[in-house]
Simulated scan of single mutants.
Amino acid sequence: MNRLFPVFLKLETLDVLLVGGGNVGLEKLTALLQNSPDTAVTVVAPLIRDEVRQLAGQHPRVRLVERAFEFRDLDHTDLVILATDNPALHATIKTETRQRRILTNVADTPHLCDLYLGSIVQKGDLKIAISTNGKSPTLAKRLREFFSEIIPDNIQEILDNLVVIRERIKGDFQAKVKQLNDLTEGLVKEAPSKDS
């Protein structure tokens, strides 16, 4: 049973440390900035790929520090993402982040993670995070592709209309919920099947 508690973070209000400037570091930095482009991210690594540099160049709040990790890098950090090919370094850093009570994600090492970075589907303001409890990123990716395909492209228009409708509905909370449920029921019943 997946006992993870799903949450959406306002990363723009946090200081993120990403340890690793290689392929996995690039993947993690890309995911962070696609979802929260104004996030303050410090990337620390002895070697930083050109693609990481290019991406950082497009985001003024990304800072590159080209050297080995030092414990002082954890000072004033809210979230740590470890993305190197050095499991011993990850374990050492994780011990320190636990003592400092800093939430940490460790690439491909579920037992060291406080949180997982889910597979994300986004269309306008609608965002869906998919978790397999760290067991199968491949399945999460396939589900992301599926949902991206079946969610209508005009979902933002639907969301904008629902905001207006919600503001106009009178009555108590329960009455509003019932009316909104009645209005949106058609979205599910009328959704085109994949075969049509």
Rank of each mutant, 00 (worst) to 15 (best):
L139N: 12
S36L: 02
F5S: 07
P37Q: 09
P87K: 06
L32Q: 01
S131A: 04
L32Y: 03
D78F: 03
L17K: 00
T84G: 02
V106K: 00
L11K: 09
G118V: 10
G124P: 05
L47V: 10
L32V: 11
E70M: 12
D85M: 05
L103V: 10
S36E: 06
I128Y: 05
S136T: 14
G57L: 10
S36K: 01
A191Y: 03
H59F: 11
E149T: 14
L55I: 07
N2T: 04
K94D: 07
A68H: 12
L74W: 09
T84L: 01
A191C: 12
S193D: 13
R3G: 03
N154Q: 11
L18V: 09
E185Y: 02
S36V: 01
C113Q: 06
L82I: 10
T132M: 09
L55C: 01
A175N: 05
I150W: 03
I102W: 08
E51H: 08
P152W: 10
R61P: 06
V19S: 06
P46I: 02
G134A: 10
V80Y: 01
N35A: 11
R63A: 13
A45D: 06
K94R: 15
A140C: 12
L32H: 02
R101M: 12
Q34N: 15
L89Q: 07
D182S: 06
V16S: 04
D195H: 10
K194C: 11
N105C: 02
I102Q: 09
D75K: 14
V177Q: 08
K28W: 03
N154D: 14
K141Q: 15
P110F: 13
T77L: 05
R61V: 05
R61T: 11
S119D: 07
I150G: 07
I169G: 00
F71S: 14
I48S: 00
E27V: 03
N181G: 05
I165A: 05
K123E: 10
D160Y: 06
P37E: 09
I48T: 04
N86E: 14
K127F: 06
D195E: 13
L82W: 05
Q99N: 11
G171W: 04
L29D: 01
K28E: 05
T84Y: 00
E70F: 11
E190C: 13
K123A: 08
T30E: 05
G20C: 08
N23A: 11
L159Y: 13
S131Y: 06
T30L: 04
A91C: 00
P6Q: 09
D38Q: 15
R61L: 11
T109P: 00
L180R: 02
D125Q: 12
A68K: 14
I48A: 02
Q122M: 08
N2R: 11
N154H: 15
R61G: 02
A31V: 09
S193W: 08
R72G: 13
N161I: 06
L115M: 15
D125S: 12
L143H: 03
L180Y: 06
L143A: 08
P87V: 07
Q54W: 08
N133H: 12
P192A: 14
R168C: 09
Q156V: 12
L26I: 00
